[in-house]
Design a protein around this nucleic acid. Structure first.
Length: 424
RNA sequence: GGAGGGGUGGCUGAGCGGCCGAAAGCGCUGGUCUUGAAAACCAGAGUCGGGGUAACUCGACCGUGGGUUCGAAUCCCACCCCCUCCGCCA
């Protein structure tokens, strides 16, 4: 979403910067609507001015016991014209919002151009794939054999794309959540937040899930609430319609929440295992920064997500998403991909984005600059990390020939000292 | 779910339908005074949209949205939120 004046004056530039990302935007309609809005605004403001002066006149005449009927009749007519023009202005602004709320963010200049994941750019690789003296198994085989993962019963009580964690499996998930939160709060300087797992329509619009992606969300039937698809939504919206004092910036929050996604349109993908679930746990990192610092903040935040994998000694790589693979609100995104032996490949475990002022404009998230003026902050978010996928990576990378799984050292204090999961 | 009370500027809190963008106090910023600080005194200070290079100027904003009226913070309606009591509940 854009400042309407900036949009009106730079429509062509923005259109070309968006390239294919803006292909389904009604640019010509928008141009006409913006011009209509400008002229209607002038009309309404002028009429209001006239009405105000006229009404003051009526007050004066009445005080002086003079007849005011003629002026009142004239102002009645002006009032009707205001009502009429105001209604058209309101309708115009509504249509502008319908269009602009569906325009994605403009990619940063450093983002590679491309239409799909093939154009993503690998930035670095950390750690090396473990060597197995046997054929590594997939996490669902490992987990079900150990009795810590149950998809059948999950399907019975809920349906497809749900899982039940049992015993040390559940313990491992909980250990990961606590480990990640502790790392980010004690060593990386984030403040822990535990937000609602449902939010209203305004919050979803603020971060960009609505209006365009409503079909991806779980929505309550009797209330206008949505289950959050990521903690980014409640946590970023914490500062919606606020002006933050200068000395409080930057602000960094971390939050554990479950995330709920309908996964509409991904019917054939990742049907086995924990990779793609309707409900999964995630520890999120959210930062609000000064515009001039946000790209430094993105590197920082991405580093904090990587630190989790480094502590767990899991091999991974970082890629810069190309323009066609980025999310709606992002100006630049790094994906962190963890090594999964069963797939002999890397799989997304974190996505770290700088949304620049895109969400801040939608949600009116501002700060007080040193010079006293208000300005939009830049908002950033990243998974730190997706907990379920981290559990997958541990099961697969730490699996042993006998089917057991060793626990990474950093996690053992969180596992009550358990060093290995064996079949019970 | 039922009954009642209330939402005004950073905060507290006034506000007869017109002279109210809004008293007063606190807090804040600048100045005078002081070796420095405090106190006292003086001055300033909201957000958004439009126009202008600028000084400046016009409009909107008193929870949100409608309505009545020449004119609404003030009257009417709906909704949202907060508080108190009752019921229910972890």
């Amino acid at each position: 979403m854009y400042d309407l004046r900036v949009l009106r004056d730079n429509l062509d530039a923005i259109k070309s910067q968006l390239g294919p990302r803006g292909s389904d935007v009604a640019w010509d309609d928008l141009r006409a609507l913006l011009e209509k809005r400008s002229s209607l605004t002038v009309t309404v403001d002028t009429l209001r001015h006239e009405l105000k002066k006229g009404s003051d006149n009526v007050a004066r005449l009445k005080r002086e016991k003079q007849p005011a009927d003629a002026v009142m009749a004239g102002m009645k007519a002006v009032g009707d014209r205001i009502k009429d023009a105001g209604e058209r202005l309101r309708a115009t602004e509504e249509r502008i919002a319908e269009i602009t709320l569906r325009i994605p963010n403009v990619p940063h200049a450093s983002v590679p151009v491309g239409t799909d994941a093939a154009s993503n750019l690998e930035v670095r690789r950390v750690g090396s794939a473990p060597a197995f003296g046997f054929a590594p198994k997939a996490h669902w085989d490992i987990g079900e054999a150990l009795g810590i993962l149950d998809f059948g019963r999950a399907a019975k009580i809920a349906g497809a794309r749900f899982a039940v964690l049992i015993g040390l499996g559940a313990r491992l998930e909980r250990a990961l959540i606590n480990f990640m939160l502790d790392l980010h709060t004690t060593r990386h300087g984030y403040q822990e937040v535990l937000p609602p797992f449902m939010v209203n329509r305004a919050a979803m619009t603020g971060t960009g899930q609505l209006p365009k992606f409503e079909e991806d969300l779980f929505k309550l039937r009797d209330d206008d609430y949505f289950l959050i698809p990521t903690a980014e939504v409640p946590v970023t919206n914490l500062l919606r319609e606020e002006i933050v004092p200068n000395d409080r910036v930057p602000i960094r929050y971390t939050a554990y929440t479950p995330c709920f996604r309908r996964e509409a349109g991904s019917y054939g993908k990742d049907t086995r295992g924990l990779i793609r679930q309707h409900q999964f746990n995630k520890v999120e990192l959210v930062a609000f920064s000064r515009p001039e610092d946000s790209y430094q903040e993105l590197e920082r935040l991405t580093g904090h997500a990587e630190a989790v994998l480094q502590e767990l000694a899991l091999p991974y790589r970082v890629v810069t998403l190309c323009t066609g693979d980025m999310g709606f609100s992002a100006a630049k995104t790094y994906d962190i991909e963890v090594w999964l032996p069963s797939q002999s490949g890397f799989r997304e475990i974190s996505s770290c984005s700088n949304c620049e002022a895109f969400q801040a404009r939608r949600a009116s998230i501002r700060y007080r600059r040193k010079d006293g003026k208000t300005d939009f902050m830049h908002t950033l978010n990243g998974s730190g990390l997706a907990v379920g996928r981290t559990l997958i990576a541990i099961l697969e990378n730490y699996q042993q020939a006998d089917g057991s799984v060793t626990i990474p050292h950093a996690l053992r204090p969180y596992m009550g000292g358990v060093e290995r999961i064996v079949k019970s």
